[in-house]
Design a protein around this nucleic acid. Structure first.
Lengths: 231, 231
DNA sequence: TCCCGTCTTTGCGCCAACGCAAATAACAGA
DNA sequence: TCTGTTATTTGCGTTGGCGCAAAGACGGGA
């Protein structure tokens, strides 16, 4: 079985239930692609010809509006698929995929992934479930940004990031990849100034510790309270 | 071929490419379900046991947050599927489905729809495309509510509604089903007061005409300008 | 080691939009 | 026709968070 970059491809949710032979055949059709920190796998409005699976690193999907404002659509962790626009009925990518750290992805032609989905129903059903989860998350975030205060949204964003990528440290739980205040602002629909102020306040009250592109949650429970009860 | 309620089921995007026999067999497994205006097909947090296709009428999918705020996730037109949470990997519905006018849906057991998706790859690929479109719309709205002013968001919402359900009248284009100011507020992440003020202003400048649960776009072009250029 | 680019913090003024309140207006059912 | 319920409009005070501005920090590369 393939095991590139120390990552067990059998654990990928998209491949769950796919038998070993079929998986090997599918992997044989993929090629590897790397992006160093700060570069992109593809840009918004590029023709969507491929689909990808992140093997190592971390990327963010960013949409830019006509007036220059940016929104982070999603942070992608290893094992997650991204850039599937073509298979999902779009001809161009709706956002850019920027590597937050040096990253590696497996890349398929959209056409061969389409035929794989058609040939292996379990793949298609997995894809539907994963896409459903993404849709639910997008709708949750929509509800949050439409009805909740910035502070609460930032709390939720931090908890989401910690859930996706928690790195335990002596003092608490660290977000496992570099996140700027700007990134947080672009996920929550706020300005980096407001985010900075909120984090500073939380640092004062001992909820977290922050430094350059680094955030350690010292008291996730209190963040949960802020996120849920609105305390 | 089946043709319930004057609606051509062969035109449903989900069924595109499915052969007649298979379609008939699939339809045979569905049962009809009706909901009068104001009632719901299902409620948020109900066990998601079925999946549905709207045949006639119009429904809105509504999420309620813990503090009572509501958000309209989507307006569903005839021919569109809704309530697929189970197939999409959720055990309960993430929102309620309320009939805005008397409505009729076809309902399948989630399990039989799952096996249909597995048996007919074209169905699964169609579902992926439709779901992809919904995801893109959710992400677009997320970007809008995170970065744009209320006025522009309302303009966009009206144009979306008109695109989904335009009824031409002598004077202009009418939204084809009853929409309250509250509904508009809940799709745009604003208050009904702000929406009312904005519509009043537009009525003054001749862009649209509004009355109780009714909106006629007299000048869609000027709305487009408001939505795009921020004029 | 120094320098320069990137990231972060903090202050201050302002305004878009909310929250509250109260007066219509329109429809549905008795 | 009357009455109760649901929608809509409009006023007014408040404020959360933005926009602008400027001054630190941190860290990587030469």
């Amino acid at each position: 079985m393939d095991n590139r970059g120390g990552f067990d491809l059998r654990r990928v949710l998209l491949f769950r239930g796919l038998n070993g032979c079929d998986l090997t055949a599918l992997l044989a059709k993929a090629r590897q692609e790397a992006a160093v920190r700060g570069s992109t796998f593809f840009n918004e409005c590029d023709d969507a010809l491929h689909c990808r699976l992140l093997v190592a690193g971390r990327i963010k999907l960013v949409q830019t509006s006509t007036d220059g404002n940016q929104v982070v659509t999603r942070f992608v962790a290893p094992g997650e698929m991204f850039g599937w626009a073509q298979v999902l009925g779009a001809s161009v990518y709706p956002g850019s995929a920027e590597a937050m750290v040096d990253s590696v992805a497996l890349t398929w032609d959209a056409a061969s992934m389409r035929s794989a989905l058609a040939a292996h129903p379990v793949l298609a059903l997995n894809a539907l479930e994963l896409l459903g989860a993404r849709l639910r998350e997008a709708q949750d975030r929509l509800r949050e940004v439409a009805t909740e205060r910035v502070e609460r949204r930032v709390a939720r964003a931090l908890l989401r990031l910690a859930r996706q990528s928690a790195r335990p440290t002596g003092e608490g739980v660290e977000i496992g990849f570099p996140v700027t205040r700007q990134d947080l602002a672009e996920t929550t629909g706020a300005t980096l100034h407001t985010v900075s102020r909120i984090l500073a306040a939380w640092e004062h009250s001992g909820i977290l510790a922050g430094s350059r592109q680094r955030i350690v949650l010292l008291h996730p429970g209190r963040l949960e309270t802020l996120a849920e009860d609105g305390g």
